[in-house]
């Protein structure tokens, strides 16, 4: 995979290998927490850790919908940027003003995957090979690949 910057500060990805392309195409679906209580709890944590019932209730009513809307908007932006990859091309572009949406959606995806598959610190630091062909192995690989893309975007922002 090649990564270049465009004149406006965006990122151009090209020559993306098929296996990586499949992982990148899966970012929006990986970021969707529905169907997993653990993932929903992680994306929308209690601001008072259960110690302030009134605050937690207000938060659920007023803040959580705003957060949800922000996450969904970011994911929609990413999905639109990935359109060339979904159409069979071997690359895509992240415009400069979409970088925050990408950072956010990549983080959503990593957190949702980690919650769904109960990935912990030991998993994240593990160097021994994982059992092949399991969904959990794929999830850990996705978390690492999405992290590398996040790191690339972050380093080039400075």
């Amino acid at each position: 995979m090649n990564i270049e910057r465009d004149a406006e500060g965006g990122f151009i990805f090209s020559d993306v290998e098929a296996s990586l392309a499949a992982m990148f195409r899966a970012i929006p679906s990986a970021a969707d927490p529905e169907g997993s209580k653990a993932a929903l709890d992680r994306l929308f944590p209690d601001p008072a850790a259960g110690k302030e019932a009134g605050l937690s209730a207000e938060w659920a009513d007023y803040v959580r919908p705003e957060l949800r809307e922000g996450f969904e908007n970011a994911s929609t932006t990413v999905e639109a940027d990935l359109e060339p990859l979904n159409a069979g091309e071997d690359g895509w572009t992240i415009p400069r003003d979409h970088i925050d949406a990408w950072l956010n959606t990549l983080n959503q995806a990593r957190l949702v995957l980690a919650s769904r598959y109960e990935v912990d610190e030991a998993d994240m630091n593990r160097t021994a090979p994982y059992p092949p062909e399991s969904e959990r192995t794929l999830a850990v690989s996705q978390i690492h690949v999405y992290g590398l893309l996040q790191e690339c975007l972050l380093q080039n922002l400075e």
């Binding site: 601001p47 008072a48 957060l67 957190l111």
Partner: peptide, 14 residues
């Protein structure tokens, strides 16, 4: 805390 949650950090207030 709302801003930190928007960035998906695990934040609370006490």
């Amino acid at each position: 805390v709302q801003q930190l949650h928007g960035y998906l950090l695990l934040a609370t207030m006490e």
